[in-house]
Amino acid sequence: MSLLSFLFKGHTMPEEVQVLDREDYKQAISKGKVQLVDVRTRAEFMSGHIKGASNIDFFQGSAFESAFSRFKRDKPLFIYCQSGNRSQRAARKLVDMGFKEVYDLKGGYRTWTY
């Protein structure tokens, strides 16, 4: 293992996860009914969210995992948070839970509103 791979281990996203910029994300979710999830807190969600998004708070531990039981693991799943940090952690967890295709909004909801 090289020094660089050691230093950056765990910082790369699994191949099942793609991070999309605002325009690509917007285009992807506009193609009909999609699995769209806001992983921010309820208060953050209530202050504004992408139309059609479900709210599943990443910080809710086992409730987070059980909430995803109603989603199809073999269909694309679109997630976002406020800045992109939480959703990257959520994306890794979702891949571990068996989701095959996860899309994350680069920069999070804050980039959506500009």
Rank of each mutant, 00 (worst) to 15 (best):
A43F: 07
A63G: 04
D57H: 08
S54P: 00
F68L: 07
I79R: 13
D96Q: 15
V19L: 05
G52I: 05
K100D: 05
F58H: 04
Y25E: 06
T41C: 04
E16H: 11
L94K: 09
A28V: 03
K33M: 06
T12K: 11
L3F: 08
K93F: 04
V17S: 04
G107R: 00
F59A: 06
R73T: 15
F8K: 03
F59P: 00
L7Q: 08
A43V: 12
W112L: 02
M46F: 05
S62V: 12
R70L: 05
K31T: 15
K93C: 05
T12V: 07
K26D: 11
R110K: 14
D38T: 09
R89W: 05
Q88C: 08
D24F: 01
T41P: 03
Q18F: 01
T113L: 07
L7H: 03
T111C: 00
A67V: 03
D74P: 02
T12I: 05
G98L: 10
R42S: 14
Y114L: 13
S69P: 00
V37P: 01
I50S: 03
A53K: 02
V34H: 06
R42G: 08
E101M: 10
T41Q: 13
D38I: 08
P76Y: 10
D21L: 03
H11Y: 14
Y103N: 07
M1F: 08
R70V: 13
G48C: 05
V34D: 10
D57P: 02
V19K: 04
Y80T: 06
F68C: 04
